[in-house]
Amino acid sequence: MTAATLVPERMRLARGLGGRLSSEMLSWFCIGLFALVCLIVVFAPLIAPYDPIQPIGAPYTPPFTSKYILGTDSIGRDVLSRLIYGVQSTWPLGILVVVIGIAIGGAVGAIAGVVGGWLDNLLMRVTDLFLALPAALVAIAIVAFLGPGTTNMLIGISIVWWPYFARIVRGEVHSLAARPHVEAARMTGVGRRRIATRHILPGVVPTLVVLASIDIGSAILTISSLSFLGLGTPPPAAELGADAAHNAGFLLQAWWVPVIPGLGVLVLTIVANLAGSGVRNLMLRR
């Protein structure tokens, strides 16, 4: 299987809203939304009205009918507070998965592209093997074997997340290295290391930033799916996917309990995608 045909599996990146933005203002606004979510994450304890773990009212209080704005769940915990804490656990994880993916994949791709030769061959063979495996399934299996929990989830997803970046970075390095400006630098007498750091790698950065910013939405969806399957932090911790899963059985009696965390994931994904498009637009403008 050729790697070129395998890369697009992650073309679910930038899926959902946020495909194209036009004006610069709008781009900055979307990035502002991203920052807003980050603020919510940082100040979650101050924003959340109640403790997310302790029951505080009657079970199954519907939303907008009491002082519990989004109602309560099966044992009377505040749904809004659990949503806010759920965002707090999911959002940084999504960013972290992408950052780790970029760090590992970027390093592998850059080394393979710059050094070339047998090392390039070896690294890319390994990358292609990873790309040929069904990413989400392997991640689920890894976390299942390691045991549920946030750290294991991070490990499991990161293991399948980096190869895509490695492919892209390596391809980008190769296409830059074949450009005349690198040959011109060689003829000027620039050393190998300096050619890599000054004449090749800076050209990879914009691509990488754009890819990363667009990829966070995908990471969040994957994380929430794994959490739904019971691979995240065990209860009673507040987690968006798991909260939806635990209450899916009661959805006919109390629709809001599974729906609200799901909507939370939807909003996070949309914000991430919009911000990603914003970053891409601003980068393309340059």
Partner: peptide, 22 residues
């Protein structure tokens, strides 16, 4: 399609049940 693709699969399932079944 754009909004649906940004939603987690479980949300689509839950909303689908509420709308088309209930």
């Amino acid at each position: 399609i754009l909004t649906g693709a940004a939603a987690p699969t479980f949300l689509l399932g839950v909303l689908g049940v509420i709308l088309f079944y209930k």
